[in-house]
Design a binder for these strands. Structure first.
Lengths: 347, 347
DNA sequence: ATGAAAGCGCTAACAC
DNA sequence: GTGTTAGCGCTTTCAT
């Protein structure tokens, strides 16, 4: 064996290397590697052979600069710890899979400033589109998005004014519908348990829609409890214990997410509380992990997979030119699932 | 208001635009925007002012091509649906936060072919480093990683030969230690319940270490059950029911992950089975959601946050030049947590 | 079907 | 402190 074949190249390989190795011009090598234009089978195989032998990996940076085409889609979400967001990602990835586009994730930790930085960073790579969670952004972020010159899809919330397109559910409506179902089932002393997150606008809107709809039936929230950090399941237990201790005559607990709701459910069952006879329970999100609990917690399915899919579809079609109109609006319908914890008959 | 200030530019802004607007050379504008070299305060503020007014977003593609520096770190993981991976991501993001590096995620769905494609795609952006889950890759993938000329950190498994650096735990050892704890506690008729995933090498290695250690005490797995897809919690229940039905005299159930273990635990408790008296249970991962269950499931904490942090640190230090040696090896110690389901005394 | 020249938007390296 | 020049590695465009 010669040294040459063994020595890994210290300089990354370029098209020129493939060109020289195959005796074909750089331009034609480029054509082969991108499947563009007519190339004879003979040249094609010569080139592919050379590229493979050398282990050539094209430089997308140079390609993107030359063609001003970037096959990246920026996806900006608040967190990865909440399964809701990976689920949306899954829907996005599923659709982009069938295209040449690639999702790139940025995480904001629910901070508008971080969002601004992440957005700036991502836009500086000139992506073909942006998918961003929520409708609330800093002025600077809105300006960047509006001026980016690429499709922007805001997702997971439709209560507000989108910059361009929007896909998601109305959380106010979700809150209202849950409230109505609770009233309809005959509950009257309702408490709310949620996250201590002023910046979780979707949770806030659900809460607003919820109290608003309750008010129509002259019902007010009798107590509430908030938490931050830690194991949500455990927090759900603790919050529930604290709340029931403080306000024993409550008859319904509405949780801002399924995990704390599940904690509350487990706690109630252990305490021998009649669910949903004495106390009804509901969460939010339709996490499929609910299925394994002793009882099916009432919840609202927010269509996250579908949200991801539709958002990706819009970006992909706009990038492909198949769709030219801006300002698409897709409002999905949150699906109420009564489960086994929201079925008490009107007294 | 003049039309000019309103009209959003159809052509993305360039350095030249900022240069013209501020009356400063492109080069100096570039210096200001990157905080490089000496620039007078007067010029600096002129430039920043102009950039801000115009809403200039630098083009990293051009920058990267010119400087051959890319502040991206490719992170390649099998899935986003399993909370384990977002958790590693969190550790990575946490450390990279303090640097100029940005993680970019690629998902392989446990498929070596997909891994190869994702890797090729990511390497074509010439990232400053690669963090990839697992030690098992296709030959082509290994070749790409070895030839990439950037730090490569394989994570979450140390049983095998790394390409460059490695951070994680030994899953064989984790399996062995769990087996020993089970034997020590006096259990003798042990069953295994896991995912039907020939490509989940880490689960496989745990299983191998597990059976190997049991064998030393002349114990064999008396039964096993596998699943794929669906709600893990529910599957845990179903598998447990099926297994107990088929092999009623089993006295220990070892689950390949905490979620199915939790399902099994809930099932056993509902059935009034004495846990851990008649049947002991253990899972794997130390998911913090276990804390909210009626009993603390025995588990093994795999140090995922720390894994992410260490991997990111290695990449960051190598990129910064602070660390020059290749082939770092960091083996973390899996931490056995007996919880309330693995405490039976020797008979 | 293939090649040659120009340039994408920025930064390294060197003047001044 | 600031400006000038020459590419980075590709693709576009036009020629043949």
């Amino acid at each position: 064996m010669s040294d040459e074949t063994l020595k890994p190249p210290r300089r990354p390989l370029t098209l020129r290397d493939v060109s020289e190795a195959s005796g074909v011009s750089e331009m034609t090598v480029s054509r082969v590697l991108r499947n563009r234009g007519d190339v004879s089978d003979a040249t094609r195989s010569k080139v592919l052979q050379a590229a493979k032998t050398l282990g050539y990996v094209p430089n997308k940076i140079a390609g993107a600069l030359a063609s001003s085409r970037v096959n990246l889609v920026a996806v900006i979400i608040p967190s990865l710890s909440n399964m809701v967001f990976p689920e949306v990602m899954t829907g996005i990835a599923e659709v982009l899979e069938g295209t040449s586009l690639q999702p790139v994730v940025g995480v904001t930790n629910y901070s508008p400033e971080k969002e601004e930085r992440v957005l700036f960073e991502m836009l500086s790579w000139r992506p073909s589109g942006v998918i961003v969670a929520g409708l609330e952004h800093s002025d600077a972020s809105r300006a960047m998005l509006a001026g980016a010159g690429v499709p922007v899809v805001e997702i997971m919330d439709t209560d507000g004014t989108p910059i361009d397109s929007v896909v998601g559910i109305s959380h106010r409506r979700a809150g209202r519908e849950m409230a109505r179902a609770i009233v309809r089932a005959g509950y009257q002393r309702v408490a709310f348990l949620g996250t201590k997150m002023p910046l979780d606008h979707r949770a806030r809107k659900r809460f607003e829609g919820f109290t608003e709809a309750l008010a129509k039936d002259a019902i007010e929230i009798v107590d509430q409890e908030f938490y931050s950090g830690g194991s949500a399941l455990l927090k759900g237990r603790e919050m529930t214990a604290a709340l029931l201790d403080r306000t024993p005559d409550v008859d319904f607990l509405y949780y801002s997410n399924d995990l704390i709701g599940a904690g509350g459910l487990l706690y109630c069952l252990e305490q021998g509380i009649d669910v949903p006879g004495r106390i009804g329970l509901a969460g939010f999100n339709g996490l499929d992990f609910l299925e394994g609990l002793p009882r099916r917690l009432a919840t609202m399915e927010a269509g996250r997979l579908e949200t991801g899919r539709q958002a990706a579809r819009i970006v992909a079609e706009r990038a492909a030119g198949t769709l030219t109109e801006t300002g698409q609006r897709i409002e999905l319908t949150p699906k109420l699932e009564l489960g086994d914890t929201l079925t008490r008959k009107r007294l």
